[in-house]
Structure formats: structure tokens, C-alpha cells
Write a protein that binds this DNA or RNA. Structure first.
Length: 406
RNA sequence: GUGGGUGUAGCUCAGCUGGUUAGAGCGCCAGGUUGUGGUCCUGGAAGCCGGGGGUUCGAGUCCCCUCACCCACCCCA
């Protein structure tokens, strides 16, 4: 075989496409029933849109190139800059809060490995122009709603919740200086996976302060986390508290979060995060948009698929057609096509063999593609304007007049 | 960028210390005679054993190089 998909890119064969469509359908449903509107933007954007905020180093992680008009462009690696641009262009005219979602395909030039390719789908849900904690809780509930629809319960996944303001305040209370914060936050973020991180924390801050932080990581000091109180309370109202786990170690990599932050993980194995989100009140303005508070999350399809597969929850491909039409004898091929056309016109998905007229074989084919019924078109019935309809599960058959067929 | 692993049929893999024409299961295709399927039986197609070089009378098997893929680290918008 000479050609294959580029590294990190995926072919979607029908079975995989079916899984993808099911996941997408759930994402759409969860968004819409919470009042979010779908939007989309260009797959290709100006390179500068992505480098302006993240710095030029990000270019190594982008599919970036010059187009024929000498423009420096890049395939989108994320949605926020596009979102900021689009909201910015119409900010004045959009009723607040702006509740938008999208299911875009992203491209990142990274080394592929488990749970990470160079192309993936990511469900993005954002609220712009709402500073109330109820908004934070709502997007958290929407993320969980989708997982629930896919069959993932609180025993399967956990949402770890923290708050950036709380983190900062706690660090300040033990005299961690502002310029040390990013590094310390980085170490705290690693504590969950990397045992060596505790040691580095101690080297950085001394034994006393390190132990203090490790204590908070061990047991979240919820009593002191007033920043999170109303979010957690609203989550209880939304009925998703069983999924929540306040966790001091959840930081999120980005520097731009300004309030609640959260990540969803599977409870069992060691997969990457299924979703992550939080509040980023300054980000829209930073990307040149209006100065509006904002929050949201992203949920990728790659890790989610892995988890569904592990749990045996992978959606099955739906049957190709509902009805399989079986001509009995070569002279019935034409009439069978007429039956097909009639069924299709009435909205019933139907298929038939192109040529072969072996009944046994046709029924086997009907089985294979998952049809529920077979319509047998034989010369005798046809002469009287009827066909035989066979229920493939029970094997029962009955004669049906052509005009009653549906 | 750093480290590790694996390459044999569409898929999952077996091929013992080098030995004739490279195998299995699943899948696929075709048959098992007239207008009735799922099971079963028979047969078939399909592999430059990732590629190149070397050792040898002889290499899927040993050595060297190379490529590809996978995994972990880094990063994670």
C-alpha cells in the first residue's frame, strides 16, 4: 500500500464515523437544550491571530504556511481567537449573555501519541458577558450532561474543580511572591501525576510552606474557599454534584484563567483529561475583542472515544437500511426497483441487490446490513399488485398490497 | 527535542535453537441446484515476512543501516 493517512490524522471508516456522529449528536443536543447556539468560523486563519497572544513559539505547534497571496496563515489549533474576533465584530448588537457552542476540527503539529493526534474534534461551549457563578456552574453541568448521555456516570468520570483566585489567595497567605506564582502553580499542577513534584516544591519554597501546600492538596480546604461556594451550590441545583471533586491540585496549564477552573478525568485508568474549562474574564479583550467576562470549556473527541471503548459504551453503527427488497427471479429486478423507489419516496430507507437474484443470498445480505424487514417481490404476488413483507427477526411473513406498503 | 518498544494476509497473531512451496483464527468472495436468511460444511482470493545491505550452501529467523508506526517524557491553547 503506497499511501496512508498522514501521521496523527485519521481515516473514518463507516463504523468509526458512526461513533463520531453519535458523539457529535450528543454534543449538539446537550448544547441546544441548555440554550447554546451553534457557530463556526474559518478553518484557516491568519497566523498572527494565533501568535499575537501566545507568542511566536506557538508556531512550531501549528500547521502554518504562506498561501498564494503571500499571507502567513495557519490551520486553527483552537477556537478562542476566532470567537473573540467574531464577538468583537458584533459585540454591541449581541444580547448578553452570549451563549455559543461549536464542534470544530482543530489541527496541531505535535508528536502524536495516545489520546493526542494532529487533528481532532473539540466541542467548545462558551458564555460571554456573564460574571455570575451560575454561568460557571451551567457550563460544567452541560459538559456532564453530555457525558451522562453517552452512558458515563459518576462512577466513571470525575470533575475536579478549583479556583484561580482561591489558589492565589492561599499562596499569598503563605507569602509566595507573585513572580514565583507561575512556577509554583506549575508544580502543584504536576503533583497528581508526578511524585517527584513534591520534592521540587520543597526545594522551591522550603519544607514548611511545601508541607502546607501538600496538606491542601491532600484535603481541599473547602472551608476557606469562599470563591467556590456559589459555583458548587449552583452545581448542586443542577444535579451534578456527584461528579464534582474540589481539588487544590487542579490548576490548568494556561496562564489566562481568572476564576473557577475544572477538568474531567476518568476515574479508572490513566487517560488524559476528557475536558477542561474555566473562567477567563480577560481573554476576549486580550484577543482584541470587547472587555467582557467569559468562560467555557473544550471537550475533545479522542480521549472520549478511548474511554467509551474501554467501558464498552462505544455507540454501534446504525443499520444501513430499514428494509431490504428481494427480487425473486431475474424478471422481478425491475419491479423490485419500483418497490424501492416507492419506499424511498415515502421516507423509508431501503436497498436491494443490483443483479443477483438468489433469495437465500439476498436475505443473508439483508441480515448483514441490519435491515429489520425484507420485502419479497415474486411474480405471483406481483401479478396481483402485492408483495410479501417478512419480519427478519421473527421470520413471519404477510402479503401486503403495493399501495399499502410503507 | 529526549528515551523506550514494535514491524509476518484487511484485522488479531503463530512461525522452536537458520532448513524445502510462510501458517491459524476472524473477515472477505464463491459454492452446498427450483421462491426464504442468521448455524454448519467445502472451496477461493489475498503477504516483495517494512526497506536496503551483509553473514551463510541456505535468512521471516542472525548482524548492520534505514524507514514507518506505537508508547512515555516535554507541551497541552
Amino acid at each position: 500500500m503506497r499511501f496512508r493517512a498522514l501521521p496523527g490524522f485519521r481515516d473514518f471508516y463507516p463504523e468509526q464515523m458512526a461513533v463520531r456522529r453519535t458523539i457529535e449528536a450528543v454534543w449538539h443536543q446537550a448544547s441546544r437544550r441548555a440554550g447554546f447556539q451553534e457557530f463556526d468560523g474559518p478553518v484557516l486563519e491568519s497566523l498572527e491571530l494565533f501568535t499575537s497572544k501566545s507568542g511566536p513559539e506557538i508556531e512550531t505547534q501549528l500547521y502554518a504556511f504562506s498561501d498564494k497571496g503571500e499571507r502567513r496563515v495557519a490551520l486553527r489549533p483552537e477556537m478562542t481567537p476566532t470567537l473573540a474576533r467574531m464577538v468583537g465584530a458584533r459585540a454591541g448588537g449581541l444580547p448578553k449573555p452570549i451563549k455559543w457552542y461549536c464542534v470544530p476540527q482543530f489541527f496541531r503539529y505535535e508528536r502524536p501519541q495516545r489520546g493526542r493526534g494532529r487533528e481532532f474534534l473539540q466541542w467548545n461551549v462558551d458564555v460571554i458577558g456573564a460574571s455570575e457563578p451560575a454561568a460557571d456552574a451551567e457550563v460544567m453541568a452541560v459538559a456532564i450532561d453530555a457525558l451522562r448521555m453517552l452512558g458515563l456516570g459518576e462512577q466513571d468520570v470525575v470533575m475536579r474543580v478549583n479556583d484561580r483566585r482561591f489558589l492565589r489567595r492561599m499562596l499569598q497567605s503563605i507569602d509566595v511572591e507573585e513572580r514565583e506564582e507561575p512556577e509554583v502553580l506549575g508544580i502543584i499542577d504536576k503533583l497528581a501525576r508526578d511524585p517527584a513534584a513534591a520534592k521540587r516544591l520543597e526545594e522551591r519554597l522550603g519544607e514548611k510552606r511545601a508541607r502546607e501546600i501538600l496538606g491542601w492538596c491532600e484535603r481541599m480546604p473547602l472551608g476557606r474557599a469562599e470563591e467556590l461556594e456559589s459555583v458548587l451550590e449552583a452545581c448542586r441545583d443542577y444535579g451534578v454534584e456527584a461528579y464534582l471533586e474540589p481539588d487544590f491540585k487542579t490548576v490548568r496549564g494556561l496562564a489566562y484563567y481568572t476564576g473557577p477552573v475544572w477538568e474531567i478525568f476518568d476515574r479508572g485508568t490513566q487517560l488524559r483529561a476528557i475536558a477542561g474549562g474555566g473562567r477567563y474574564d480577560e481573554l476576549i479583550a486580550a484577543f482584541g475583542g470587547p472587555d467582557l467576562p467569559a468562560l467555557g470549556f473544550g471537550m475533545g473527541d479522542v480521549v472520549l472515544r478511548e474511554l467509551l471503548q474501554e467501558k464498552g459504551l462505544e455507540p454501534e453503527a446504525p443499520p444501513r437500511v430499514e428494509v431490504f427488497v428481494v427480487p425473486i427471479g431475474p424478471e422481478m429486478l425491475g419491479p423490485a426497483r419500483q418497490v424501492l423507489a416507492r419506499l424511498r419516496e415515502r421516507g423509508v430507507s431501503a436497498d436491494a441487490p443490483y443483479g443477483g437474484t438468489k433469495v437465500g443470498k439476498a436475505l443473508k445480505a439483508a441480515d448483514l446490513i441490519g435491515a429489520r424487514r425484507a420485502v419479497l417481490v415474486g411474480p405471483e404476488e406481483w401479478a396481483e399488485g402485492a408483495v410479501r413483507v417478512k419480519d427478519l427477526a421473527s421470520g413471519q411473513e404477510q402479503s401486503v398490497r403495493l399501495e399499502d406498503l410503507e
